[in-house]
Every structure is written in structure tokens, then in C-alpha cells.
């Protein structure tokens, strides 16, 4: 109807706004996809050997992922933690060589395509490269 005639300018503006809205929704969807993607982290406190080096297990260590619950790992413990999102922060509290408590905090990224990771705490504390690795459940 005549009172709803849309002039060229308005039309272009609307097309742009709508396109932007759809784009926004897509970006939002992508953000939600990566942000909500769940991963399983296996926290491992075992002696392992990597590239010829041996990382010894700790007697006791406290690990926290993001703002989650603090997990206390004793010798040979393996704990499963579910997290969502790609960017994660790991906080490890352990008794240092000098007897004092030491805290190491580190940010790391998870790949969307990998559902499960194995984190070796001894390797982490030692600052080794391969402290986090994708994990394939064998069954």
C-alpha cells in the first residue's frame, strides 16, 4: 500500500541491517559452538617418560581448572574433569623443593575436534612441552 512505499535508501539500509543481523546470529552460533564445546580432561599424576626424560610423580598435588573444584591428586591418581570452552586456565599447587607451596598458573587452548585430553601434572610442573596431549580412549 502506498503508505508503506519503501524508498531505495531505506531498502538498502534494511538489507544491510538484516544481513548484519544474520551474520551476527551466525557469529553467535559459532561463538556458542566453541564456547560451549565440552572436553574431558584427564589429570594424571604418574611417572612418565617423554623424549627420553623422566618426570617423577608427586606425592600430593592440587589442581584446579578454571574456577572449578580443586582436585587433590595423590600418587598414581588419574582424575576426569569435564570442561566447556576452548580457553582454559590450569592452576597447580604443589610443595616445592624448598618445602614451600608453589603455584603454577597457565592458560591453554583446546582444539574443538578433540574430545579428550591427557594432562600430565609432573610434565606440567617440569615445564615440558608435551604436558598436554590428545587422548584416544582405547576401548
Amino acid at each position: 500500500m502506498s503508505n508503506f512505499a519503501i524508498t531505495g535508501n531505506v531498502r538498502i539500509r534494511r538489507i544491510l541491517i538484516r544481513a548484519a543481523f544474520i551474520l551476527f546470529m551466525l557469529i553467535l552460533a559459532v561463538f556458542l559452538f566453541f564456547g560451549g564445546k565440552a572436553h574431558t580432561l584427564l589429570l594424571d599424576n604418574k611417572t612418565i617418560e617423554k623424549e627420553g626424560k623422566i618426570y617423577r610423580e608427586l606425592n600430593v598435588v592440587e589442581v584446579r581448572i578454571g574456577s572449578g573444584k580443586e582436585e587433590e591428586l595423590l600418587k598414581k591418581d588419574r582424575v576426569k574433569i569435564d570442561v566447556s570452552g576452548q580457553r582454559q586456565v590450569i592452576t597447580v599447587t604443589f610443595p616445592g623443593d624448598d618445602g614451600n607451596e608453589k603455584i603454577i598458573k597457565k592458560t591453554f587452548h583446546l582444539k574443538a575436534g578433540v574430545p579428550m585430553y591427557l594432562i600430565s601434572i609432573p610434565a606440567f610442573i617440569a615445564g615440558a612441552d608435551g604436558w598436554i596431549e590428545p587422548f584416544e580412549p582405547s576401548n
Binding site: N3, I6, R14, I17
Partner: peptide
Amino acid sequence: LNRESTKNNFMTELFGD
């Protein structure tokens, strides 16, 4: 009827007049 007076709002840009 069908010639109502209207006011714009933010939704018109998205979903039309």
C-alpha cells in the same frame, strides 16, 4: 483500518514496516 498511524522502532529495521 490498514492505514493506521505508526511509529518506528528498532524492530522495523529488522522485520519490516
